[in-house]
Amino acid sequence: MSVIRTGAIVAPRLGRAVSRAIPPKISDAEREVVCLFDESRSSVFRYVLSFGLSTEDGEEVTQEVFLALFQHLRLGKSRHNLRGWIFCVAHNLALKRRQVNQHSRNGVYSERAVAESQFDPCLNPEEQVLSAQRQTRLRAVLAALPEQDQHCLRLRAEGLCYREISRVLGISLGAVSLSLTRSLRRLRFADGG
């Protein structure tokens, strides 16, 4: 599998058609996939990264998701809730990639991520320290959450409704609701403490 580095796109092996003067005709499926890519690539990328994947792996998995979507559309399969479908595929591919890499971590909120946290320039130095402490507490609680609870939170953060989350994770709607409630309660206490 080719690895894509940020800012240095690996040129794909294109056929002779690319060198033709007339650009190839864009199919409806292709156009739709690119549209959906523009809409949801950031969300999918963030979700994939939350499995502890590197940026390069995240980029590759995200590409694979949309290539799979292209095949899905071309085969005339169900177009019902494509966003849910995209996250479902992203979830499975990210899990697979993490297993292959065999360097799973306790989620995205790792030490590296903490070190990379940004400060809000609108805050004064004292507020910045307090804000950083609060964020550190939240990250610690997030990292301690069961993995499924973290997935629920991240999917919700990316705008999925409960029904979509339940489909992506293969759990009941009630389990989604309880998971989110439980996680937010823990975060709330962390924030207060």
Partner: peptide, 21 residues
């Protein structure tokens, strides 16, 4: 935590289009 790790979309979009073609 995550946004700084998401590269700009232009390059990946071009790559996706080439792969789709």
């Amino acid at each position: 935590t995550l946004d700084p790790q998401v590269p700009p979309i232009d390059g990946p979009r071009a790559l996706l289009r080439a792969r789709l073609a």
